[in-house]
Amino acid sequence: MSKTDKHQPASRTGRLRADPRAFSAVRDKLGEQLRAMYGKLEDEPLPDRLLNLLRQLDQPRSRGKP
């Protein structure tokens, strides 16, 4: 992006960024962690209100709705 991305002496990852391979390894690892976190959320049981909504999908006809 802009030059601000290239000059970040205060950044803790500044040293790492000087080494693109190590930096991309860190980013890959963070990506794995992100997917793991997301996967756990997907596996969580759904709350009642969403389950109720799903049950409505399974009803053959809506009642009283045009």
Partner: peptide, 16 residues
């Protein structure tokens, strides 16, 4: 991704 690494102060893949 860059910002996440920054925020988490990750300097080394071993930290993860």
């Amino acid at each position: 991704r860059t910002r996440l690494a920054d925020l988490l102060g990750v300097e080394n893949p071993e930290d993860i």
